[in-house]
């Protein structure tokens, strides 16, 4: 596995120089940015589901929180992008930390459904607030500055790298051991002295912080956000499919699953426009049936 992880670092390096090599960059830039965005989301979810055993079906709620916070700070308070993004991630992370102790009393599908309800409810709240632009959403300026044309590719690449490094750290650290103990048996983890509430909360906080950052970059990338795009249940589904396809609880699986799903989706989309949804759905079902633990799955 360690060798495979080294390959991933080479993969990141290759992705960093690809803008200079690929001829049709606007097209490839969009495809690769989408794949890197999905990778970051899947890696963020992996901290919570893969290592802690808590499936947040509505984890995209924090994508929305991060995206909206970034957009509001930029648009209404003229804060530059990067500080806005950081605050967006932190608001998402702290929100998760605050709600974690009561929310994470629920387990497995109860937790999953509750987070999904939170995502849908937050979407409705945002749609009815004035300062969020309601259903009209928020328009953001088009990015003009260094690396124009490549900026969002590098931003998503950076987020994917950070998410990957955090997964590596969780996989090998004492913190990660506590999370894995909770995933294996929460009562047993408590009985050996692991403060399960604290560790679960931090896991949820880290996962949501990363998800919030991705939401912030996405908001600036597409320059227009509304509740439908930022609290989209389909994005939750896609994140879970990528994670399950690659392998839950592995450092590389979420990256592999996200790239595979995004590339297959792109090929099917460009070649079979009319039946794209059916073909993609069938491929996902086949993938899950043939490799139920994911391509690199260990659990």
């Amino acid at each position: 596995m360690a060798r495979l992880e080294k390959v991933i670092f080479i993969f990141f390096a290759v992705l960093a120089v690809l803008p200079l090599l690929l001829p049709d960059w606007p097209y490839w830039g969009r495809v690769l940015s989408s794949a890197l965005m999905l990778s970051s989301l899947a890696l963020a979810q992996n901290v919570l589901l893969g290592y802690t055993g808590y499936p947040a079906f509505g984890g995209i709620a924090f994508f929305g929180i991060g995206g909206y916070t970034t957009a509001i700070l930029m648009k209404s308070y003229s804060v530059p992008f990067l500080p806005s993004l950081l605050v967006g991630g932190m608001v998402a992370g702290f929100t998760a930390l605050i709600i974690a102790p009561p929310l994470m009393r629920l387990k497995s599908h109860y937790f999953a459904i509750t987070t999904l309800a939170l995502q849908l409810a937050l979407g409705e709240v945002v749609a009815n607030l004035e300062f969020t632009g309601g259903t009209d959403g928020i328009n953001l300026p088009i990015y003009r500055g260094p690396f124009e044309g490549y900026f969002f590719h590098f931003m998503f690449l950076f987020l994917a790298l950070i998410s990957f490094l955090i997964n590596l750290w969780v996989d090998r650290s004492v913190f990660g051991y506590a999370l894995k103990a909770i995933r294996e048996d929460e009562v047993a983890a408590e009985s050996v002295g692991v403060n399960t509430v604290l560790f679960k909360s931090f896991s949820f906080g880290i996962s949501s912080f990363l998800t919030g950052l991705v939401g912030g970059v996405y908001a600036y990338w597409i320059t227009y956000i509304d509740p439908t795009s930022m609290f989209d249940p389909l994005l939750s589904v896609k994140t879970f499919v990528a994670l399950l396809l690659g392998g839950v609880g592995t450092t590389i699986g979420p990256l592999l699953g996200a790239f595979l799903l995004e590339m297959v989706s792109e090929i099917v989309w460009s070649g079979l426009t009319e039946v794209h949804g059916i073909i993609l759905g069938l491929l996902i079902v086949l993938g899950i049936l043939l490799v139920p633990r994911g391509i690199l799955g260990v659990r």
Binding site: K180, A181, E184, D185, A188, S191, V192, V194, R299
Partner: peptide, 25 residues
């Protein structure tokens, strides 16, 4: 310390990992 009913082990972890977690504090 409690050696619980049904042994409550971390079944997906190795023997040594279980013991290391026992020394958490």
């Amino acid at each position: 310390a409690l050696a619980a009913e049904g042994r409550k082990l971390f079944l997906g972890m190795s023997v040594e990992e279980n013991l290391l977690l026992g020394s958490w504090i």
